[in-house]
Amino acid sequence: MSRIARRFATLRQQGRGALIPYVEACDPDFDTSLAILRGMPAAGADLIEVGVPFSDPSADGPTIQKAALRGLKGGSTMKRVLEMVAAFREGDDETPIILMGYTNPIEAYGPERFCADARKAGVDGLIVVDMPPEEADLLAGPAAAAGLDIIRLVAPTTPDDRLPVVFSGASGFVYYVSITGVTGTRTASTDELAHALPRLRRATDLPIAIGFGIRTPELAANAVSVADAAVVASALLNTLEATLDANGQATARTVPAVLEQLRALADAVHAVRK
């Protein structure tokens, strides 16, 4: 059983939902992002998404765009991202790590070598934003060979008859993009979620995470009351950005501020009994 499957099985036994925070690699530098990553499980992260910086994140809003540019400025390469995950794994063999990014850096690294190296570093799953099921054959073989879960995105625009296409070849969990739009902007209403979730449940047995626009403990709790997990990215990155100095460098407040916010989100999520 993969780390992801194990973690969701445990959570289900305990009757809890999961919080999935996001950290952008090398934002604003390798050591700071590694310190945040290392602090996340103790602050209440159940799974963690690590963002792989890309120069042209066309599905992301301004917050993640800026984080990606800071990450690139901070020396991020695919090799460094994997080193960061490997360093995290030295102290944590339980918390699932999911890499989230775009196709081109993976293609440039070489899909087979990437999947093998990611596995070796301790990565458990992949979310490739601009790789819909129609283009997934690039990674399907190598990811399966390396034992990596491919986490599929599903959107409000995905019609019912397309759900089987999206879920074929999906594993780990399903990521519901709860709004039409980019990350960190609008928030889905309770009504929208209440309508969407049963539709997805009918089409898959995989756990469902909700992402896009979840910025407060209340919204996170709301999300896990209908789904299995809540993803929080832009809200944490906004907090991180606010602690940087005038040159964009990390300060003493950077790591504690992000983890403190994460703790508040986690408390709200874990208070929801399922």
């Binding site: 934003v129 819909p132 283009e135 599929r152």
Partner: peptide, 8 residues
């Protein structure tokens, strides 16, 4: 190569 939101 687009996000799922755009595929449909």
């Amino acid at each position: 190569f687009v996000a799922e939101t755009l595929m449909p």
